[in-house]
Measured scan of single mutants.
Amino acid sequence: MAEQVALSRTQVCGILREELFQGDAFHQSDTHIFIIMGASGDLAKKKIYPTIWWLFRDGLLPENTFIVGYARSRLTVADIRKQSEPFFKATPEEKLKLEDFFARNSYVAGQYDDAASYQRLNSHMNALHLGSQANRLFYLALPPTVYEAVTKNIHESCMSQIGWNRIIVEKPFGRDLQSSDRLSNHISSLFREDQIYRIDHYLGKEMVQNLMVLRFANRIFGPIWNRDNIACVILTFKEPFGTEGRGGYFDEFGIIRDVMQNHLLQMLCLVAMEKPASTNSDDVRDEKVKVLKCISEVQANNVVLGQYVGNPDGEGEATKGYLDDPTVPRGSTTATFAAVVLYVENERWDGVPFILRCGKALNERKAEVRLQFHDVAGDIFHQQCKRNELVIRVQPNEAVYTKMMTKKPGMFFNPEESELDLTYGNRYKNVKLPDAYERLILDVFCGSQMHFVRSDELREAWRIFTPLLHQIELEKPKPIPYIYGSRGPTEADELMKRVGFQYEGTYKWVNP
């Protein structure tokens, strides 16, 4: 592979701008107003304001973009700056750019259920340069409990009458099928589907988006991507930290609602779906819905739930269990780990287990898709061969690698495990991989909904998990304890083995 010439960040961002501006969906010269509902909250200060700053800094926003914060707290732009700027990672050389960014910011205080507050917000936006005809993007960085009041008031008082209007809704989209349907029906009564952007930030990850290209742009994968060759698929999300004093919020939802029903299920769809007619948003989402419709409700015998306990040999936070978090209700049975087996009941995947695993306070930070292939028929190497695996590593250190057998150097035919490896950090030294939120917010500006969740996708996802969630809430089974920093409950490994996964433990990928 030829040595790549190092590029400056300015040059890299210039390439990104060229890609972005050559499309006809990006209205570079139009006025846009980006409204952050819930501007005083954690999500706004840690993710949304920093993301908008990065896009502005790199010249990736339309030229005439204004940012308006809205929340109940009586704040000023200076207050917003004070709480969000520490997350910007701005350099001293960017000081003038930073001043320009905050000059485009404003803030309006108001209630979430008060019509007069929204009329005041609308008047404020109209007073901005060309504000009355601007395109408006409303980001709901809010708890779902206020979605209905907020969307109703936005629709009645704050819509642009000339430009387009788009609304970005953060997960969780309800707690179960019934609450999700209620919320979807409410929002759909106010906005068209092409105006609604239900954001799952995992769909903005580079390697998640790469799944489609790997599958449908490489001839070698087509013939082997089926039940005849693939023994099982494992989708993993692991965090090495616990709730760390923020367990009160987590306890309301648990690990299945927080990660599995959305992030992991979306990745499953991209692995299992048929080739779409095109890369058009609805063509892709149509195929994802077909996959979900082929999955039956989760069966309790295919589920393992766990909850982390303190590690007596650990240090600091590792010595504390979930129930030691003062914000967690006493005696909570909320799971911090889950392993679930699903089956896609169609011709391509009949009988292939899709194993979804996620948890907190585990032994490493990792998100990946792992396809394990069947054993080689007619073994001539005296059971020395391990199964081939194709691994798409989402985070950290984005990579695609194939675990395969090669001859060990020497005189004899002794096979050993090795890999074919594409590590993004080595291959793409001159490429700026956008943060997931950067990519998705740019998608909203461009009107691309491919990486957002459609209402029928959402409904099918909740259909699969709601009976299990209701059973857990009714019966309150005690989750299996696992030690902070471990791989999780051993019962999860036993479940995976029972459905056909072979864990060798003899080879570990190392970032080159």
Rank of each mutant, 00 (worst) to 15 (best):
L7V: 13
L7M: 15
V12G: 11
V12R: 07
G14K: 15
G14F: 14
G14C: 09
I15P: 07
L16V: 10
E18T: 06
E19V: 10
E19Q: 14
E19T: 15
E19K: 14
L20G: 03
F21D: 09
F21M: 12
Q22R: 12
Q22N: 14
G23S: 06
A25Y: 15
Q28S: 14
T31G: 14
I33Q: 07
I33L: 13
I35G: 03
I36E: 01
I36H: 02
I36T: 03
M37N: 10
M37Q: 05
A39N: 07
G41C: 04
D42I: 03
K45W: 05
K46A: 03
I48C: 04
P50V: 07
T51L: 04
T51F: 08
I52L: 14
W53C: 01
W53N: 01
W53K: 00
L55C: 10
F56A: 02
F56Q: 03
F56I: 10
R57Y: 04
D58Q: 10
D58S: 07
D58W: 02
G59C: 10
L60F: 12
L60A: 06
L60W: 06
L61I: 11
E63M: 08
N64I: 05
T65W: 10
T65E: 03
T65Q: 03
I67F: 09
V68F: 11
V68M: 07
Y70M: 08
A71K: 01
R72H: 00
S73H: 11
R74N: 12
R74G: 10
R74I: 15
L75V: 12
T76N: 14
T76L: 06
T76V: 05
T76A: 05
I80H: 08
I80F: 07
K82T: 13
S84F: 04
S84D: 08
A90P: 09
A90H: 06
A90Y: 05
T91D: 09
T91W: 12
P92C: 07
P92Q: 14
E93G: 12
E94R: 02
L96N: 11
L96W: 13
L98D: 03
L98C: 06
L98V: 12
L98H: 03
D100I: 07
F101N: 02
F102I: 11
R104Y: 08
N105P: 00
N105D: 00
A109L: 06
G110V: 01
Q111A: 12
D113F: 14
D113H: 08
S117D: 11
Y118G: 05
Y118L: 09
L121P: 01
L121D: 05
H124P: 00
M125K: 01
N126A: 15
L128C: 12
H129T: 12
L130P: 15
L130K: 10
L130D: 10
G131E: 13
S132I: 07
S132T: 14
Q133E: 09
N135V: 09
N135P: 08
R136F: 12
Y139C: 08
Y139F: 11
L140Q: 07
L140A: 14
L142R: 04
L142I: 14
P143N: 13
P143G: 02
T145M: 10
T145V: 13
T145N: 15
V146M: 04
Y147W: 02
Y147K: 00
E148K: 15
T151M: 12
K152I: 09
K152F: 10
K152H: 11
E156N: 11
C158D: 13
C158M: 11
C158P: 00
M159D: 10
M159Y: 10
S160T: 14
Q161E: 14
I162R: 11
G163F: 10
G163L: 06
G163E: 06
W164H: 10
N165D: 14
I167M: 13
I167E: 00
I168A: 09
V169D: 00
V169S: 03
E170H: 01
E170Q: 00
K171C: 01
R175A: 09
D176H: 08
L177M: 13
L177F: 08
L177P: 01
Q178R: 14
S179W: 03
S180L: 12
R182W: 12
R182G: 15
R182L: 15
L183V: 08
L183K: 00
S184V: 13
S184E: 07
S184G: 12
N185V: 12
N185Q: 15
H186N: 12
I187N: 03
S188Y: 05
S188T: 08
S188C: 10
S189P: 13
S189L: 05
F191I: 09
R192K: 15
Q195E: 15
Y197P: 00
Y197A: 00
R198P: 03
I199M: 07
I199C: 04
I199K: 03
D200H: 04
H201F: 00
Y202W: 03
Y202F: 13
G204M: 05
G204T: 03
G204R: 00
K205L: 03
K205Q: 03
E206Q: 11
M207L: 09
V208W: 01
Q209M: 06
N210H: 01
L211G: 03
M212L: 13
M212H: 04
V213P: 04
V213L: 08
L214C: 08
R215G: 02
R215C: 01
F216Y: 04
A217S: 15
R219T: 13
I220P: 06
I220L: 13
F221I: 14
G222V: 11
G222P: 13
G222L: 14
G222R: 05
P223N: 15
W225Q: 04
W225R: 00
N226M: 10
N226R: 03
N226Q: 12
D228Q: 13
I230V: 13
I230D: 00
I230K: 01
I230P: 00
A231L: 11
A231R: 07
C232A: 13
I234H: 12
L235N: 03
L235T: 06
T236Q: 13
F237Q: 06
K238N: 03
K238A: 09
P240W: 10
P240C: 10
F241S: 04
G242P: 04
G242N: 05
T243G: 13
E244T: 05
E244S: 11
G245Y: 07
G245K: 09
R246P: 00
G247F: 05
G248C: 09
Y249Q: 03
Y249E: 00
Y249I: 02
Y249R: 02
D251W: 04
D251M: 01
F253E: 03
G254P: 01
G254S: 03
G254A: 07
I255M: 07
I255Q: 04
